[in-house]
Write a protein that binds this DNA or RNA. Structure first.
Lengths: 104, 104
DNA sequence: TCTAGACTGTTTGTATTACAAACAGGTTTG
DNA sequence: CAAACCTGTTTGTAATACAAACAGTCTAGA
């Protein structure tokens, strides 16, 4: 039978098993407020296309909420970590910690 | 600018950015002994084809060693976590933990 | 007033890859 | 000996990560 730690790892949200999305979710859950597209872009050093598609997926999975508004005349897209997203990150962290501890 | 934690994550071994392989490696590094194909199969609930290709990749990357022998007349394949593999797992898990910690 | 360039992000094309179905070789069973 | 059962491997296909190309808007300069 698989160890508890390993099973928890497999049960964590699939979207978080990509390093870019994990980094995105980490930033968003830290912020506790909306973060805009450009900030994420420069912080994570991604291309716009790549970030755009990752955010779309995260929204589809309900881990973030996308808000679009205008600042002056310019479009501005911001992202907010949902409760579900925060929970997913927590679950993932817990699983990783469990593996870490049991491997000492 | 990307955080230090994020950079560490980017430097982790590419093979571990798949949840199944991560689970396999976590399992093998915890076992500290050879684990056979069938055990991994039932413990991780995978199909044979899927497990086979993942193990092949992990061997090619030097993270596991594959041993083949016979038990009675039946073939038996076992997998052993290499030092490189153990190191890779530690690096990955530590980096992930750092990223997530920075967001709490 | 044009024209070039910068700032929004999105859509598309491609190369990689995860996955299970199909396969193959030997073994046990009836 | 034929059928079912173990080993795992090879294969075809669907999904996906990524950046290039695209599209719309705004601003600056000649």
């Amino acid at each position: 039978m698989a160890s508890l730690a390993t099973n928890d790892l497999l049960r964590a949200h699939p979207a978080l098993f990509d390093r870019v999305r994990l980094a995105i979710m980490a930033h968003l859950s830290l912020a506790k407020k909306a973060v805009d597209f450009t900030s994420l872009l420069t912080e994570l050093q991604l291309t716009r296309g790549n970030l755009s598609t990752h955010m779309k997926k995260l929204e589809e999975d309900g881990l973030v909420r996308i808000d679009k508004n205008f600042v002056g005349r310019k479009p501005r897209t911001t992202y907010l970590c949902t409760n579900k997203g925060r929970k997913a990150v927590q679950t993932y962290l817990t699983a990783v910690e469990a593996v870490l501890k049991s491997s000492l």
